[in-house]
Simulated scan of single mutants.
Amino acid sequence: MDKHITPAALRRAIRSGEFSGNTSGYSPGFVQCNLTILPADWASDFLRFCQSNPRPCPLIASSNKPGDTGLPLLGDIDIRTDVPSYRVFRDGVFVEEVADIRSHWRDDLVVFALGCSFSFEEALLADGLDVRNISEGVNVPMYRTNIDCAAAGPFQGKMVVSMRPFKAADAIRAVQICTRFPSVHGAPVHLGDPGLIGIDNLDLPDYGDAVTMGENELPVFWACGVTPQVALEKARPPFAITHSPGHMLVTDLRNSQLAVL
């Protein structure tokens, strides 16, 4: 499928089952979102968790009211069908991965759409930087860390990060570029020695795929929207749904609308 497909056409392809892969590099220019869906009586604590941890959990949009399946701010969306792959959690435990969530939908569910690092990748590419997961055609590598998130009610846990390798000069440029995009994770949270943030082996990501580390390259780590999935494990809500890592909600919102000039 042509990666320059419009967001609406990509969502239609996802809805019909024609497309089910990771969305990195698709619909360039448009915001991609992580997804967390929770019962209404858990929503206020999760909202506070996002507000307390804006780097890993930058909130872009949420339901107008429980049970809503659309997110009008982000486009003509049916949240039950328009993400390539979903993860279902019960009592904080991941139980299954599904292609749509119509059979799981409930009238008390609240949707949170969070900014995704795939959005700032476009700005890195536009500056001539090699974004390794895109050039190698794989899902970005993501790792659990020892970095604590601020707790909010039952939601707490360690931050998850995504990693992209760069030579030192390019890493500095990546920091400068991504600082302009606080709504999609902003500047990196760490670069260099992965052991300092609790990562033992870059070749064994917790989510996504390993990428090639070139000679004289540094691993650069950004806060990642998979972090809420770790918080769900700690909070143990009776029911929750997220996107599968790398399989995002692709919206009609333009990346340029999120940039801080």
Rank of each mutant, 00 (worst) to 15 (best):
M1T: 14
I5S: 08
P7W: 07
A9Q: 11
I14N: 02
G21I: 06
S27C: 13
F30A: 11
C33Y: 04
C33H: 03
L35P: 01
T36I: 08
D41I: 15
C50R: 07
N53K: 02
P54E: 12
P56A: 06
I60N: 01
A61V: 09
S62I: 10
S63P: 06
N64A: 15
G67F: 04
P72Y: 12
G75V: 07
G75Y: 02
I77A: 00
Y86M: 01
Y86W: 01
E97I: 08
A99R: 14
D100R: 10
F112K: 01
L114S: 08
G115A: 07
C116L: 04
L124P: 00
L124S: 00
D127G: 13
D127Q: 14
G128C: 09
R132K: 11
I134V: 03
I134C: 08
G137E: 13
V138W: 00
N146R: 12
I147S: 13
D148N: 09
A150K: 04
G153W: 08
Q156E: 15
K158Y: 05
V161F: 01
M163K: 02
R164C: 00
F166E: 06
K167N: 14
A169D: 09
C178K: 01
T179H: 04
S183H: 10
G186W: 00
A187Q: 01
A187T: 05
H190L: 05
I197Q: 08
I197D: 02
D200V: 08
N201S: 10
N201M: 09
L202I: 03
P205S: 13
A210C: 14
T212C: 01
M213Q: 09
E215M: 10
E215D: 12
V220L: 04
G225W: 02
G225D: 05
Q229S: 07
Q229Y: 13
P238W: 06
F239I: 03
H247R: 09
H247E: 11
L249E: 10
T251N: 06
L253E: 12
S256F: 05
